[in-house]
Design a protein around this nucleic acid. Structure first.
Lengths: 153, 153
DNA sequence: TTAATGTCTACTAATACGGTAGATTTTGTG
DNA sequence: CACAAAATCTACCGTATTAGTAGACATTAA
C-alpha cells in the first residue's frame, strides 16, 4: 500500500512544472536541484511521463520540459499509473491488469478490495495538478502567516 | 498500492477461522489445504496474528488456532497492519510509522496522501470478519441460485 | 563547431517478498 | 513413561522489485 519513490518524485516534478505552467520549458537540472531528486533518476521519470503524453520536451541546448496539457486536465492517478502501473490492491479488481482469482464469484476479499480500489481512485482520479497548485499556494500562505497546521497527524 | 501475498493469505485464513468461530480450534494443516496456502508460510502468518492478539492457539497434539475475539471485533485493517505494517501510502501520513517529510507544512503531496489513507482505512477499519462471513454466505447463495454477478469489473 | 541539453539502453546495488528448513517445545493418548 | 502430532522459533534462501547509475547518442542554440 505504499507509494513508490518513483511516483513520489514524479508527483513532485509535475507539481513543480504545474506551478510554472505556460512559462516555457524547465530543465531537468533545475527540477532535480529544487526538489532534491537524483538527476539521472528524474531523467527516466520525465521520459516516461512524456511518452505517456503528459509532458512535452524540447531537445538540445536550452531544452527542457513543460506540461503537455493544462494542469486541470492531468490527475494524480494518471501519473501514478504511468509509473507504477495498476493502482488496484489486487489484480482481480484491477481495470489495468485484470487477472481472475481462483473462485471469482465467491471471493469476498475481492469485493472488499474493489471497495478499496474505488476509494483510492475516487481521490487520485479527481485530484488534478491545478488542485495541487491551489493547495500548495494556500499552504504557503498559511506558513507565511505562521498559522498553525490545520491538518494534524 | 498492492496487497501482499502474506496479507491476502492472512485474510483468507481469518475468514476461514471466522466461519468456524466457537467450534473449537482448527489446525494449520486444515486451513492450508482448504485455502491452498503453503503450510510453512501459513505457520509464520498465524504466529504473527497470535502475537498481535487476534488468535489463540493450543499447542501439542490436537492443538490448533481459533479467533481470540468475536469476528465482529476484528477488522481487516488490524490484520493487514499486523502483517504488512502501515497502510498509509507515505510515511509522513502514517499513524503507525510516522516520519516527517522534508518540508512538512507545505507538502501538498502529504495532504493528498492523507486523503488516500483515510479513504483506505475508512473501508478496512470498519470492515469486520463478521461482515466478511455475511458477504461470503450471501455470495455462496447467489452461486447456488445461479444468479448473475451483481458486481462487474 | 561546440557545449548544453534531452534520449536511450543497459547495468548495478540494495531491499522486500515469498517461501523453506530444521530443531525445539508442548501435550494428548496408549 | 514413551511417542507422535501439533505449535514455536530462528534462520536461511532464491527471486523480483525498487532505486539509482553509467555512458553513448541525438539534437539544437549560439
Amino acid at each position: 500500500m505504499k507509494l513508490s519513490k518513483k511516483s513520489d518524485y514524479a508527483l513532485r516534478a509535475m507539481i513543480y512544472l504545474a506551478m510554472n505552467y505556460q512559462k516555457g520549458t524547465l530543465q531537468i537540472k533545475e527540477i532535480s536541484t529544487k526538489e532534491k531528486i537524483p538527476q539521472k533518476f528524474l531523467e527516466n521519470i520525465l521520459l516516461t511521463l512524456r511518452k505517456a503524453g503528459m509532458l512535452n520536451s524540447k531537445m538540445g541546448l536550452k531544452g527542457g520540459y513543460e506540461l503537455a496539457r493544462s494542469p486541470d486536465l492531468i490527475t494524480l492517478g494518471e501519473v501514478i499509473r504511468a509509473l507504477d502501473g495498476a493502482i488496484a490492491p489486487v489484480d482481480c479488481v484491477s481495470k489495468m491488469s485484470y487477472k481472475p482469482c481462483s473462485e471469482e464469484v465467491t471471493c469476498v476479499i475481492r469485493s472488499v478490495m474493489m471497495d478499496v480500489r474505488n476509494a483510492i481512485t475516487d481521490v487520485l482520479d479527481t485530484m488534478t495538478f491545478a488542485d495541487m497548485c491551489k493547495r500548495a499556494k494556500e499552504s504557503l500562505e498559511r506558513k507565511e502567516n505562521n498559522d498553525v497546521l490545520t491538518y494534524v497527524i
